[in-house]
């Protein structure tokens, strides 16, 4: 009896001490090899090789790489001059191991593309998201992500509009995507497309606010179109005469129009002495991209609706 108790006591003490000692050693080893797991990305950077090496457990390994990617980003984010060179390969490995891991595309599109908060590699982000769309064509979020990279980082409104528009056609897409597509198209000057998208939104939505917003946008679109048309007239006039038209009447005469064009509210457009075509009441057309006084800021309420 006594003997057995003694052995148990010694073994128990030995176990606890060994656990503590091994934890201390482990802690020190971790300090010795910072980012050690990431080193293998440098050696094994072919997703195909890793896929083979995962022996069919790609899902699990993808999750591990995904965690590593997040971990890597998180640890780099704190540096004064972060270097995200491994972020793209980590995400590429992750998504090739598990092409349906949508969160990886989401994350990648934001932090891989962003110059301010991330790696600043929008082209690789676009590549990544396109790969995601290829594998998950029914997920509207990916089109949305793609559109955002074009919009935010590349200021390519046309491609952004195209991406949002493709996304809006996916079944169950959030109606918001269509709205974004319309907005991008408007920004890009694709008024036809924009009108079509806003009209579709106006007719299909059941949400009062969205309907109202669509209506406002359609009105703003007309302003955009009218102003563009009139402004082209001003430019044309300038090229021909070497001066600005003195009044709206002179402009209309030069353009061969017999009536003063009016905005959707029935107010005629005005011509400023600087040769700019503007609406009478800017607050009524807060969504317009043209025809507003320079430096115009819409009232907060209007801004809240997209």
């Amino acid at each position: 009896m006594k003997h057995r108790k003694k052995i148990s006591l010694i073994a128990g003490a030995c176990m606890v001490l060994s656990l503590v000692a091994s934890s201390i050693v482990l802690h020190r080893t971790d300090q010795l090899r910072p980012q050690a797991t990431l080193d293998e990305v440098l050696f094994l950077n072919s997703p195909k090789v890793i896929k083979r090496a995962s022996l069919g457990f790609d899902g699990l390994v993808a999750c591990i790489y995904w965690t590593r990617a997040v971990q890597y980003f998180g640890s780099r984010f704190r540096y004064a001059e972060p270097n995200y060179s491994l972020l793209a390969p980590l995400l590429e490995i992750t998504t090739q191991l598990d092409p349906h891991l949508v969160v990886a595309y989401d994350f990648g599109s934001t932090f891989l593309a962003s110059k301010q908060y991330g790696a600043g590699e929008p082209e690789r982000a676009i590549e990544l998201v396109n790969y995601g769309i290829q594998n998950n064509p029914d997920n509207w979020r990916l089109y949305y992500d793609l559109g955002f990279v074009y919009y935010m980082e590349l200021k390519d409104y046309k491609s952004a509009a195209e991406a949002f528009e493709r996304g809006s056609r996916v079944p169950n897409a959030h109606p918001f995507v269509k709205i974004l597509a319309a907005q991008m198209a408007q920004h890009a000057g694709e008024y036809q497309t924009a009108r079509m998208l806003w009209s579709a939104t106006f007719q299909t939505t059941h949400d009062k606010q969205i309907k109202q917003s669509a209506f406002e946008h359609l009105r703003a679109l007309r302003v955009d179109e009218d102003v563009t048309h009139l402004q082209d007239g001003v430019t044309h006039f300038g090229e021909r005469t070497g001066r600005l038209p003195a009044s709206m009447a002179e402009l209309l005469a030069a353009m061969g129009l017999d009536r003063v064009p009016v905005d959707p509210d029935g107010n005629p457009y005005k011509l400023t002495p600087e040769g700019r075509v503007e609406v009478r009441v800017p607050d009524d057309f807060a969504f317009a991209t043209k025809g507003l006084p320079p430096g115009y800021k819409p009232p907060p309420k209007a801004h809240a609706q997209f």
Partner: peptide, 23 residues
């Protein structure tokens, strides 16, 4: 450190085995 770690870890697992087996 790896040597130490392996020795400590094995010692922990073996102590556990002794503890269980002894009872």
């Amino acid at each position: 450190q790896n040597t130490l770690y392996a020795l400590f870890y094995a010692s922990m697992a073996l102590s556990g085995a002794v503890l269980i087996f002894e009872r």
